[in-house]
Design a protein around this nucleic acid. Structure first.
Lengths: 269, 269
DNA sequence: GTAGTTCATCTCATTAAATGAGACACATCA
DNA sequence: TGATGTGTCTCATTTAATGAGATGAACTAC
């Protein structure tokens, strides 16, 4: 056996290269926002030849993952991603269950309500319903992603993971949390304690979004694992004690109903 | 030259096979809804070997396109699709522009408002804001996709395409429209005329959703091409003449504002 | 606890399929 | 019309995906 080490130093036990390349193309395209990416963007950031680039672009277009921009030579993400993404966001059927409930809460209380799920070291927003009162939030919409630790929903999710897993995640995110959000791990751990003690969390205040605050509660399955979290966000001035209790109770009721229905369909084949 | 015909009969000028395979896997997974797909689902519907399947599954997981279901041996769509999909749905920045306006309309009038874009022979829903009044609709949420011809937004989009293109699309969709929605091409063409004459459309009534109706107006760029369509949906009983005019005017005002802002950022590099 | 089942991975030879270089065709715009 | 940059093609090369079958790991049922 003389040919052990793979020549490609970084390719140990990795995905098929075509997939990796395709993903790189999609990420470059996504990083261009609504303007997409140009040929030069791709050629600059990728390390394969132009024909190959075009072959992949063509393939991704055929699959609906990319489409041509109205501007010649630029490419945008395709709508197939939106369609599949909508499916993906309905993990365990939770989103369909949550949507009407979030809407009801938003209409009743006027604040904005969110459904989050864990995605590795991040929390991802599965659904938002905005209420009548304007609000600022870290995520603008469905598909928004935050490092776990940011926002009240993060805390609600973290609190019910295993201690080891939680530490790993926090450790992994520590730098980002501090640099990008000015949030310290210790403060998150304090808030996790609050969550475990009182059943809800308020998030950790960093230097960003100082005018807003929120509440979150976990959505737990029968074994206590977090399926997701429901949260809300509002102007600090609206967060009176009464309003807080009202909203919390509303959320708790809706989540209880959801969980009952969810258990029926979650683990059935 | 004796080796002309590709052995794989259907592979003429097609995408890289890995991409095709990956997409097949994603589609099979998507077709399982929130329960995802099992190994057997894949093996039954695909024509490559088990090791290859696992290699691709692993790759797709690494890319965030798939994740493991809590149920062993099942796979769900990954959240990366949701994140990319959210980006994809913001084509030309239209969705960000539209969201607050749809929300305002929904809160003001109580009906449900939608943003649609064309996606090949389909219309895809980029955004929904539901109002206080309950409503049925062909699309439940962002990411919903309909064949062009179904729904009022479809008509608003079709009306401003070139005649040839429109005919091709309708011809392509004819069978599906009739079979799945009980909608005849001729009726769509009538409604297109109405759209062109009056500036809005009401959709074509098939046998489905008979209790609901709606309105749609196009979102046109400076050259008259449709960027998308804004539509609304409500119980028929709510559609009085007054309400119709109110809502139409509201939508037209919001779209006018959007288009002004959109032109600023659409074609700028 | 142990057998049975299904999921997942590994190894290795084979070969198909992706790749790169460079030429070429096609738009778009000045 | 000519210049620029986009998109496609051909073809030889070789990488990198593939299949068969064995093996390992995880969960289930008894």
């Amino acid at each position: 056996m003389t040919r052990d080490m793979p020549v490609n130093g970084s390719n140990t036990h990795q995905s098929p290269t075509t997939l990796v390349h395709a993903m790189q193309i999609l990420q470059i395209t996504a990083s261009g926002g609504h303007r997409g990416a140009s040929i030069d963007n791709y050629l600059d950031e990728l390390d394969f030849s132009r024909p190959t680039l075009y072959r992949l672009l063509k393939g991704l277009k055929q699959q609906g993952f990319l489409r041509s921009s109205p501007i010649r030579g630029r490419y945008l993400l395709g709508y197939e991603l939106l369609v599949l993404g909508a499916q993906a966001g309905n993990g365990a059927g939770l989103r369909d269950l949550a949507r009407p409930r979030l809407l009801a809460l938003a209409q009743r209380w006027g604040d904005s309500f969110y459904l989050f799920a864990r995605d590795g070291v991040n929390a991802v927003c599965l659904e938002v319903q905005n209420g009548a009162y304007p609000v600022g939030s870290f995520v603008r919409a469905t598909g928004g992603r935050l490092p776990l630790g940011v926002g009240q929903a993060s805390v609600a999710l973290l609190a019910y993971l295993g201690g080891d897993e939680r530490d790993e995640i926090l450790n992994h995110n520590a730098e980002r949390l501090m640099d990008e959000y000015a949030i310290a791990i210790a403060d998150i751990e304090d808030e996790i304690s609050h969550q475990l003690k009182h059943g809800y969390s308020r998030g950790v205040e960093g230097s960003l979004l100082p005018e807003y605050c929120g509440l979150a509660i976990p959505i737990l399955d029968h074994s206590g694992h977090p399926l997701g979290a429901m949260s809300c966000s509002m102007l600090k001035s609206r967060m009176t004690t009464d309003h807080k209790l009202d909203v919390l109770q509303g959320m708790q009721e809706e989540v209880a109903t959801m969980v009952n229905k969810a258990h029926g369909l979650l683990y059935l084949d």
